[in-house]
């Protein structure tokens, strides 16, 4: 599958998901449990993405490098209620700074 096909297929599915919500009558709202599951889905996926993005080694498996400190700085920024863009820049800057100093 070329990257373009994946991009467009992903976009199509994202749109169909949104449209489905508009077209399904509210009376057919799923059960309470299903709603809890779908509500928690982003938490599970985003948590996993944080772990993967922080620890995934290029050759497979997990490793620890400057990204861990970038993540730590980002969490600190969130605790201090920094806006999204500041959190991202702080995370990148700490990792880039450590690498510029020669640490992994």
């Amino acid at each position: 599958m070329t990257l373009w096909v994946a991009v467009l297929a992903g976009c199509a599915l994202a749109y169909l998901t949104k449209l489905a919500g508009h077209l399904v009558p509210a009376a057919k709202l799923e059960g309470r449990r299903m709603r809890r599951v779908t509500g928690l889905l982003p938490v599970a996926l985003l948590t996993s993405l944080v772990v993967v993005q922080t620890f995934a080694a290029s050759g497979g498996g997990l490793s620890v490098d400057a990204r861990v400190f970038g993540l730590g700085a980002a969490v600190l920024a969130l605790v201090l209620r920094a806006p999204f863009i500041v959190v991202v820049v702080v995370g990148a800057a700490v990792a880039a700074g450590l690498r510029a100093l020669g640490w992994s």
């Binding site: 938490v43 985003l46 944080v50 980002a74 995370g91 990792a95 880039a96």
Partner: peptide, 18 residues
């Protein structure tokens, strides 16, 4: 990597999660 963009992605996800 030199600009820490891999760490920026982790930071973006944790900011969305928070």
């Amino acid at each position: 990597r030199r600009w820490g963009l891999d760490a920026a992605a982790a930071a973006a996800f944790v900011a969305l999660l928070w």
